[in-house]
Design a protein around this nucleic acid. Structure first.
Length: 496
RNA sequence: GGCGCUAUCGUCUAGGGGUUAGGACGUGAGAUUCUCAAUCUUAAAACCCGGGUUCGAUUCCCGGUAGCGCUACCA
């Protein structure tokens, strides 16, 4: 294994190991991002591993969705594995642990063991469940005999008892962690159908793939003690662990598809017109800080600044409501990234949104429109509503009263439009010429800019709020502008 | 129930034994422009509670409370 570093220090290997039981979750995406940042910051290797040992819940659609999400984020990885293709390895490992006497067969029928809720119900019961009665003590002979007879069993780790053994590790985020082995239950390694559990498969693969740093959600913090035991059973050096604070909903609950809907899926952000770099920027700021008051950051900057020391320990709330599904800060960051994008690039990103809206939008036209709307949109999809009048052949119907400026009446509005109609045919359609011609016209009418431009703006755009008038007229062209102003003038006639 | 983790403005966070507790989003007010947006200025807004330690705690320690996690033959 060649080391690209000249320093001689081993290069870290990290992994992102999603289980394909649903779409790519924003929490998973963040875990992926943090792993990526750690890997790339340290010139290490990023491994993607599909943890698909739960045959019941895995789906191909989910695998597709996860890849789709990851590809959208624009972050790469170096190696790729599927846990389901490594079953033999897991079983061999289980066999080896069993052979060392570090695991035992538990013939208790599945579901016969007390569940969590049952333990809760029996408020009289003290402490945690540690093992099923009798199973740990079964003699090897009897165990072998029952197994040979075909009786189903789960394989459980024989957690050291009564030795006063303290399990410990130093977490990259949470610091020194320790727990008496006596408080760790005899967790399962193999299910009664012979399939490895998450704990086993995960550790075996981490060991086999020589993962040096495990960066994952804090929900695994206490599981780590079990994992330490498995690595020990494997005779492998445990990797370094770092746990990330969880992303939670505004009500403090863990994000879930069932409870919170599509806002937990990264494709929802993509479809709404988030830029991947903005989304990544936002997610990084949830639980991590560069500690220098900077918030708008490029991927390169984040990668350079990223350290585990900058990771926070408290859960982070991602804000959303039914009316407003996106965190305001995410939206703001997106607007910032939109404005930071070169016009050509932004206009390319906008194309699919215009197409989806059914507009006849050529790349040239979009390129011309982009600078006019780029400061007026927060999400890419906002462009459709912001720029519709550039692409529509016929303006959507609007209230002619809109044409009348603040302090004025229909007669004034008509005079403005008529004047524009007289002046425009002889005016060159560039910014400066329009500016001069229209301002001169306003002066001749004894009007200020506001009352002069407003009727024209509404006539041309079909609404009061729009991009700057002259730029807009240039893009629209003389014919369209004249036509729309004529139309507006007529609307006003019938209105008065 | 047991074990663990966490606790600074509404939210994301910086800070740390003595600070006017800093920044950002959002919100209010104002400035500016042909509207909107952007931009600028500005305002309101926080150290969970109780005990220690200390000359002095928001910061360190302990306890409480709350939230979250684990406590599955889910991951």
């Amino acid at each position: 294994m060649p080391d690209p570093n000249s320093s001689g220090a081993p290069t870290p290997r990290v992994r992102f190991a999603p289980s394909p039981t649903g779409f790519l979750h924003v929490g998973s995406a963040r875990t992926f991002i943090f792993n990526w940042l750690y890997a790339r910051h340290n010139h290490g290797t990023m491994v993607l591993r599909l943890d698909d040992t739960d045959v019941e819940r895995n789906t191909d659609a989910s695998v597709q969705s996860i890849f789709e999400g990851l590809r959208w984020l624009g972050l790469d990885w170096d190696e790729e594995y599927k846990q389901s293709e490594r079953l033999d390895l897991h079983r061999q490992a289980a066999e080896a642990i069993f052979a060392k006497g570090l695991a035992y067969r538990d013939f208790t029928p599945a579901h016969a063991a007390p569940t969590h809720s049952e333990v809760d119900d029996h408020s009289s019961s003290q402490g945690a469940w540690l093992s099923n009665p009798g199973m740990r003590e079964l003699s090897r002979e009897e165990s072998d005999r029952r197994a040979a007879a075909g009786e189903p069993f789960a394989l459980r780790y024989r957690v050291p008892r009564g030795e006063g053994r303290i399990l410990q590790f130093v977490d990259g985020v949470y610091g020194a962690q320790s727990k008496p082995a006596d408080e760790v239950e005899d967790f399962a390694l193999l299910r009664s159908d012979g399939m490895p559990t998450y704990h086993l498969a995960s550790c075996v693969d981490d060991a086999d793939l020589r993962i040096s740093n495990i960066i994952r959600g804090q929900d695994h913090l206490t599981n780590t003690f079990k994992h330490l035991l498995i690595f020990e059973g494997l005779g492998a050096q445990p990797p370094h662990f770092a746990h990330l604070p969880l992303l939670v909903a505004p009500d403090g609950a863990k994000l879930s598809k069932r409870k919170h809907g599509p806002v937990v899926s990264v494709t929802t952000y993509r479809d709404a017109g988030f830029l991947p770099q903005a989304f990544v920027n936002f997610l990084c700021l949830l639980g991590w800080s560069p500690k220098n008051d900077r918030e708008f950051l490029t991927l390169d900057e984040i990668r350079d600044l990223f350290t585990l020391e900058g990771v926070n320990r408290a859960n982070a709330v991602i804000n959303f409501t039914d009316e407003d599904p996106f965190d305001a800060k995410a939206v703001w960051l997106n607007a910032e990234h939109i404005r930071a994008l070169p016009v050509e690039e932004l206009s390319r990103d906008l194309q699919p949104f215009f197409e989806q809206a059914g507009f006849n939008a050529s790349p040239e036209k979009i390129l011309a429109v982009t600078p006019l709307i780029r400061e007026r949109i927060k999400l890419l999809r906002d462009a459709v509503a912001a720029a519709d009048f550039f692409f529509l052949d016929k303006l959507a119907p609007y209230d002619p009263a809109e044409l009348i400026p603040q302090k004025g009446d229909a007669a004034l509005a008509r005079r403005v439009l008529q004047t524009a109609l007289e002046v425009l045919p002889a005016t060159a359609f560039d910014h400066d010429s329009l500016d001069k011609a229209l301002r001169d016209a306003a002066a001749s009418l004894g009007l200020k800019a506001g009352p002069m431009f407003q009727p024209i703006r509404v006539a041309v755009c079909g609404r009061k709020n729009a991009p700057p008038l002259f730029e807009t007229m240039v893009v629209l062209g003389r014919e369209v502008c004249l036509e729309r102003i004529r139309q507006a003038e007529q609307n006003l006639q019938s209105f008065a």
